[in-house]
Design a protein around this nucleic acid. Structure first.
Lengths: 246, 246
DNA sequence: CGGCACGTTGAAGTGACTCAATTCGCGTGG
DNA sequence: CCACGCGAATTGAGTCACTTCAACGTGCCG
């Protein structure tokens, strides 16, 4: 199992960063711990000081902020291959929480091991760093999404983003991928009410561009969906994967 | 002048990360290029592939997205000591632009020099990485700000954030700091109309919690402002500075 | 003096929100 | 077996906060 985990991580990092066999071996010296958690479980909470970082093997996680009043804002969605709280390696205190959106499988990497790794293997450090930079680019796009786009466009945009990322992660099945969010959660991600989400969704369905049901997202007409969202995937920096680093 | 620049950079990094004299010397081997640019100048544009990263010495910069329709969304503000496009070191293509909000002084660091530096000096790499992670935390808070908070609260929140950061950067004068944004720009930062900004500002002024005029922000009653914004500075990760890294 | 950028204020319009009722599917338990 | 409760989604109706539109004031600069 640990070998499997390391192989997945290596695969992910190699999509954008070139790593030598020396660095592969260094990765293989890590000792991840495997775990499964159920839908709705908080993996880390705002205010925690984790001593591990999570590598998501299967399922979907979300980061979120909670205000004192209890309102929730989802910040990002994470799929297999992501490292959703890698930043906790260098930022002691969690400024947000991490929750499982369905049944997930994860691996824990000890911070002290990661720290040693990045100190000894600069190329690995650069690969992990790059990963967090892509996360940041996605955060930026989220600001624009809630700030500038209208409800239907906004919904279409996240759906585009998720599908594009799922495809890059090779976890699509044909034209569909897992998407376990309820409309309430979607509302808290997109800063719109449940009712608006429902109507926007109906609109996209009626246009026959996309369908979301039973926890799956199915793209009916990618061109149409992309046009509706004005989705430009460059911020996902997937081209790095093709180019294999700089 | 270059020495001055390196000293500033070192100072900033040392606020959250411990660096030895060896690493100091490595930093000193960099050859920054100095430049001044006027208000409104774009330093980098969406789509560019910069081969330098910017260190902001004086003044204020902003990152922004532009949609095809031309609408603009400001993503982040940057003050002296920030490295507003450090991510371009590892993400080839810029997914956003960078503009000067007033007359600014900057230093350019060549990517190839930075690359060599982070490859040879892991502690420096970690310090720079941490810097980008703090930026990401600020992006996350921006999502919540536009997504969840009401206009007055939202405005109060950015003002709190900017003042707190200015104070940490030691560029306050008493209870005031530079804040050169027009209300139109504030609107594009906060995803609200110019009119709403004006009214929200009037409200805060009337409450005697803060005043913004002539490009300066003056805090009249920090407690009141902070309460209004429900501002919790932990996401700025300033405590790292006190603790000097992990 | 005129033009322009910026900010303020009033008034009108509207899009998204809240509230509410209904349906559907699912699991539990009488 | 069916009744019931619950979570989720849909749909209609009314309200309201923020937007847009517009007029005006102010300060600055050519």
């Amino acid at each position: 199992m640990p070998d499997q985990i390391i192989a997945s991580l290596l695969h992910r990092l190699c999509q954008h960063s070139a790593l030598s066999s020396r660095e592969e071996r260094a990765l293989a010296r890590l000792h991840p711990r495997f775990a499964e958690v159920t839908r709705g479980t908080d993996l880390v909470r705002q205010g925690d000081r984790p001593d591990v970082s999570i590598f998501l093997l299967r399922g979907m996680l979300a980061r979120y902020h909670t205000l004192v009043e209890g309102d929730r804002q989802y910040l990002a969605l994470h799929i297999a291959g992501d490292l959703p709280d890698l930043q906790s390696l260098f930022l002691g205190v969690m400024d947000h929480s991490l929750v499982a959106l369905d049944a997930v499988q994860i691996a824990y990497f000890q911070h002290d091991q990661l720290c040693r790794l990045v100190e000894e293997e600069p190329r690995v450090a650069m690969a992990l760093w790059r990963q967090t930079l892509i996360d940041a680019a996605i955060f930026r796009e989220a600001i624009t999404n809630v700030g500038l786009r209208k409800p239907v466009e906004r919904l279409a945009h996240v759906l585009c983003e998720q599908f594009a990322r799922a495809r890059a992660a090779k976890i699509c099945e044909g034209e569909s991928c897992s998407f376990p969010l309820t409309q309430t959660q979607l509302g808290q991600l997109l800063a719109m009410s449940l009712v608006s989400v429902s109507r926007a969704m109906a609109r996209l369905r009626r246009d026959r561009s996309v369908d979301v049901r039973d926890g799956r997202l199915t793209v009916l007409d990618w061109k149409k969906l992309q046009a509706r969202a004005r989705f430009d995937p460059s911020y996902l920096h997937l081209e790095l994967r093709a180019a294999r680093g700089r």
